[in-house]
Amino acid sequence: MRWEELDQQPCSLARTLSVIGDRWTLVILRDCFLGVRRFDDFEARLGITRHILSDRLKKLHDAGVLEKRPYQERPRREEYRLTAKGRDLYPVILSLVHWGDRHMVDENGPPVRHRHRNCGCYTRAVLTCSECGQELRPQDVEVEESPAWAGRVMPRKRTRAPE
């Protein structure tokens, strides 16, 4: 599988990675969720070259993850806003942050905390079943072919939980 052909793979993860699967794109998305919207602000916060930043923003825009909105007419200037498709990436970003908070921190601990506005408590990313609300762990989930995939080659069904 070639990197530039990920968007053509019959795998949802591969197709997703074709849009958000590089380090600059993920930190741009992180900053979008922190309220950064303007090109110069992304550039200043990230220390990224204009060329790479422009390329990643264009890719996110073309994929429908970000939209451009004018904030000034003369000269015309636009800012980048998350679309509904982009906001749907919030659990992904929050889960990656949580993983980093558990496995990549130094002796000072996590650099930020997430407080749930509704209850006021600090929170962390937890994946739950959409039907019963229980926490989802790898050993609790079976992967099956969907009707859309029936008849195509599928990896063997996992019979044991990953170790």
Rank of each mutant, 00 (worst) to 15 (best):
T49V: 08
R50Q: 04
H51K: 14
H51Y: 15
D55E: 11
R56Q: 07
R56I: 05
L57D: 05
L57K: 01
L57R: 05
K58L: 09
K59L: 01
L60Q: 07
H61M: 01
D62T: 14
D62E: 15
A63F: 04
A63R: 02
G64P: 02
L66P: 00
L66G: 00
L66I: 00
L66C: 00
P70R: 13
P70W: 09
Q72F: 10
E73G: 02
R74M: 04
P75Q: 11
R77Y: 10
R77W: 10
E78Y: 13
E79S: 06
Y80N: 07
L82K: 12
T83V: 11
K85Y: 04
K85T: 05
K85I: 05
K85C: 06
G86H: 08
R87Q: 15
R87T: 06
L89N: 13
Y90P: 04
Y90S: 15
L94Q: 06
L96Q: 11
L96V: 12
L96T: 14
V97I: 09
V97S: 02
H98R: 07
W99C: 08
W99I: 07
G100T: 14
D101G: 12
R102G: 01
M104F: 09
V105S: 15
G109N: 15
P110S: 12
P110R: 15
V112H: 07
R113K: 13
R113H: 07
R115Q: 14
R115T: 09
R115N: 02
H116T: 02
H116L: 00
H116C: 04
R117K: 10
R117L: 09
N118W: 04
N118A: 08
G120I: 01
C121K: 12
Y122H: 08
Y122C: 06
T123L: 05
R124T: 08
V126N: 12
L127S: 00
L127F: 09
L127W: 07
T128I: 13
E131R: 07
E131V: 09
G133C: 05
G133R: 07
Q134C: 14
Q134F: 15
L136S: 13
R137T: 04
R137D: 01
P138I: 02
D140W: 13
D140H: 15
